[in-house]
C-alpha cells in the first residue's frame, strides 16, 4: 500500500502531506504559546507593579533582573542557526550532501550554544535565589523560557536524527529527504520565531 502525496505535492492543493501537516502543527503551537502569552498579559495587567518584589527588593524594569546581553547573544545564536538551517536545505536542493552535513552540523552546534547560554542564565538566577516561586514575573519567565527550551531540545533531537541515522534516506530517496529537511527547518524557524517574540516581551518590556 502506498499513501499518495507523501513526496510530490497534490496538484489541486499544491502541498505534500508532510508540509500541510507541519503547518497545522505549527498552528497549534501558535495557540499553545498564544495561551501562555495571554496569561502573561493577564497577570501583568492585574499586577500592581511589574516585575515587582524579587528577593526583598522592588524592581521597576525586567532588564534589571534578567541578563539582557546574554539574551541578545542568544537571539543572535538562534537567528544564525535559522540561517544555517536554510543553507542545509538549500545544499540538498543543489545536490551537495557534503555541504548539507556542514550546515546541519552548524545548526545543531548553535542549538547547543543556545542551551548552554540559557543554562548559564538559569544558574545565575538560581544562585541569587531567584526561583519561580519568588513572584509571578519570575514564574512566567521560567515557564515560558523553559517551555521554549524544551522546544529547542526537541528541534536539536530532530536535527541530530537527520544528521546521522535519518541521513541514510539521501541515498534511497533524495527528494523525500530534502522535503524532510525543509519540514524540520519550518519547525526550527518557528522555535526561533517564538524566541524573537519572547525576548522583547520578557526581557525588555
Amino acid at each position: 500500500m502506498q499513501i499518495p502525496f507523501t513526496v510530490a505535492p497534490r496538484p489541486d492543493t499544491g502541498v505534500n502531506n508532510a508540509k500541510l501537516g507541519v503547518w497545522l502543527f505549527l498552528a497549534s503551537e501558535v495557540m499553545l504559546f498564544g495561551g501562555l502569552f495571554s496569561a502573561y498579559i493577564f497577570l501583568r495587567i492585574g499586577a500592581p507593579e511589574w516585575p515587582g518584589m524579587v528577593g526583598g527588593h522592588a524592581y521597576e524594569r525586567a532588564s534589571d533582573i534578567l541578563n539582557v546581553p546574554l539574551a541578545t547573544l542568544n537571539t543572535m545564536v538562534l537567528i544564525g542557526s535559522s540561517v544555517t538551517m536554510v543553507m542545509s536545505w538549500a545544499s540538498l536542493a543543489m545536490q551537495r550532501f557534503d555541504r548539507y552535513r556542514l550546515y546541519m552540523g552548524a545548526t545543531i552546534a548553535l542549538g547547543f550554544v543556545f542551551l548552554v547560554v540559557k543554562a548559564f542564565e538559569y544558574g545565575e538566577k538560581f544562585s541569587h535565589g531567584y526561583l519561580p516561586a519568588e513572584n509571578n514575573f519570575l514564574a512566567i519567565y521560567f515557564v515560558l523560557t523553559g517551555l521554549h527550551g524544551l522546544h529547542v531540545i526537541g528541534g536539536i533531537l530532530v536535527n541530530m536524527y537527520f544528521m546521522w541515522p535519518g541521513a541514510r534516506m539521501w541515498k534511497t530517496d533524495p527528494k523525500r529527504f530534502t522535503n524532510r529537511i525543509e519540514i524540520a527547518g519550518l519547525y526550527w524557524h518557528f522555535v526561533d520565531l517564538v524566541w524573537i517574540f519572547l525576548f522583547p516581551t520578557i526581557y525588555l518590556l
Binding site: 498552528a27 495557540m31 504559546f33 498564544g34 501562555l36 495571554s38 519561580p132 514564574a139 515557564v143
Partner: peptide, 25 residues
Amino acid sequence: LLLAFPPLEAAAVLQLSDRLLDTSF
C-alpha cells in the same frame, strides 16, 4: 481540537507549575 486544546495544555503547564514549583499563577 487543533486550536482549542493547546491553551488548555498551557493552562495545565501553569497549574502543574503552581503545584510543583509553588508559583502563583
